[in-house]
């Protein structure tokens, strides 16, 4: 087995928990839980939909915290963590919207409802964070990009309540289920399954974030090595033959 450069014992354990937990969620959510009184088996979509929602907003919030930390300490790691977390937040957000639409069609009779607060506000927020990912692709100096990204990540997080409130007022009625955890309507096993699914979602989020972070870190190393190599060659030409161990301060013009 070839070693996996982005895994460690921590992530391996997280990965094992994710896979075992996923099996449990499939068993519980797919077979053992009772169908809902109103929507029948369709309620089973909840066990992937709700974790996706939690992952989306966790990604955005973790991204903002890491960005704040970056601006405070100027830690390259925090910058990459922010990138990783928000990227996963956006992916989960897209999945969230898609599963919402799939769920909406048979239960509400429509894929999309402009009257629904969570649908519309999630869409706007995901689009907002797509902008963040666009900034991450900017062909500028690492530090400039990191600073700009951090500012956007924090601004976008400030937007979460603003978007939520504006959309809530805008569409006075909502089709969406009220938060179903608190109203005591759910059966015990259903609630338990949902909790398990959320926890597994968060574990998967941690696994993905760590892996993505390490890939980003490697990408940055490749950029640096490329630059350091170029500098080393130049020096070798200049006859001294300095080792390629020069660690030049980042800066690579290429977006990739």
């Amino acid at each position: 087995m070839t070693p996996n450069p982005t895994s460690s014992s921590t992530t391996r354990n997280l990965g094992i928990v994710t896979i075992l937990g996923l099996g449990l969620v499939v068993l519980l959510g797919g077979f053992l839980t009772e169908p809902d009184d109103l929507m029948g088996d369709l309620v089973r979509i909840m066990y992937v939909h709700v974790p996706a929602a939690i992952m989306t907003y966790t990604g955005f919030v973790v991204g903002a915290i890491a960005s704040g930390f970056y601006l405070w300490k100027r830690s390259e790691f925090a910058d990459l963590v922010a990138h990783a977390a928000i990227e996963i937040g956006v992916i989960s957000g897209v999945l969230l919207i898609l599963t919402g639409a799939i769920w909406g069609e048979p239960t509400w009779g429509t894929y999309w409802s402009w009257q629904d607060v969570r649908l519309v506000s999630t869409l706007v927020l995901v689009l907002l964070y797509v902008g963040y990912l666009a900034i991450r692709q900017l062909p500028v100096d690492h530090h400039v990009r990191a600073r700009r990204s951090a500012v956007i990540a924090i601004a976008s997080t400030i937007m979460i309540p603003i978007v939520r409130y504006s959309v809530t007022w805008w569409s006075n009625r909502t089709l969406h289920q009220e938060a179903s955890l608190t109203d005591g309507k759910l059966e015990d096993l259903t609630l338990f399954t949902l909790m398990v699914a959320i926890v597994i979602g968060l574990v998967a989020f941690a696994w993905l974030t760590i892996h993505r972070f390490r890939v980003l870190w490697l990408e940055q190393q490749v950029d640096n090595v490329g630059l350091a190599g170029a500098i080393a060659e130049r020096r070798a030409e200049a006859s001294t033959g300095v080792e390629a161990a020069v660690t030049a301060p980042s800066a690579n013009g290429d977006p990739s």
Partner: peptide, 29 residues
């Protein structure tokens, strides 16, 4: 179909992304 599609999307989507990080990590390493 709706249930299977929703489950496949979330598990498949995130799973594919996870696998991508692994292969990309190997290539970069």
């Amino acid at each position: 179909v709706a249930i299977l599609l929703a489950w496949a999307l979330v598990i498949g989507g995130l799973g594919a992304y996870g696998l991508w990080t692994i292969t990309r990590g190997k290539a970069l390493a």
